Simulated assay, not measured.
Amino acid sequence: MDLQSRKISFVQEFLSIESEELISRFENLLKNKNTTLKNTELNSMTISDLNRRIDQSEDDSNKGRLTEMEDFLSEIEKWN
């Protein structure tokens, strides 16, 4: 089945759903997926931009402006 056929099939199935909760879950899934896609789009950068980022990272490292892995993982646990 090609993508267009799958979309049509999905929409037909979706239209038959009677559960408000299930519709809300699909809405949230779509919203989260669109946000994730927007956040993960890659933008090209020039060589000079890349070198500037590398220089900044090295400077941060040399001056101790780092986050230890354990601290970072602890912070991530607080996100949920």
Rank of each mutant, 00 (worst) to 15 (best):
46 T>F: 00
51 N>Y: 00
45 M>T: 00
52 R>M: 13
41 E>S: 12
15 L>Y: 05
25 R>T: 15
62 N>Y: 04
74 S>M: 04
60 D>Y: 07
61 S>A: 13
8 I>E: 13
24 S>K: 14
13 E>V: 02
38 K>V: 03
32 N>R: 13
59 D>I: 10
65 R>E: 04
41 E>D: 09
79 W>P: 05
74 S>A: 05
40 T>K: 12
80 N>V: 04
17 I>Y: 02
63 K>G: 01
44 S>P: 02
25 R>N: 15
49 D>P: 06
62 N>A: 11
71 D>E: 07
27 E>N: 13
14 F>L: 15
23 I>L: 10
49 D>E: 15
77 E>H: 04
40 T>A: 05
72 F>M: 11
1 M>Q: 11
79 W>M: 14
12 Q>T: 13
48 S>M: 05
55 D>P: 00
76 I>S: 02
28 N>T: 13
65 R>I: 07
38 K>P: 01
17 I>Q: 09
31 K>G: 00
33 K>Q: 14
46 T>E: 00
49 D>L: 05
45 M>I: 00
2 D>L: 02
48 S>G: 06
11 V>G: 03
6 R>M: 08
18 E>R: 09
52 R>W: 05
71 D>W: 01
37 L>R: 09
46 T>M: 00
48 S>Y: 05
72 F>G: 12
20 E>L: 03
44 S>E: 03
48 S>K: 07
80 N>T: 05
71 D>P: 02
21 E>I: 05
41 E>N: 12
25 R>Y: 14
55 D>W: 00
67 T>H: 06
13 E>L: 03
3 L>S: 12
19 S>E: 02
51 N>H: 03
67 T>E: 14
7 K>H: 12
7 K>C: 14
15 L>P: 06
74 S>L: 00
3 L>N: 10
49 D>M: 09
78 K>Y: 04
64 G>C: 01
48 S>D: 11
1 M>I: 11
42 L>D: 03
58 E>Y: 03
78 K>I: 05
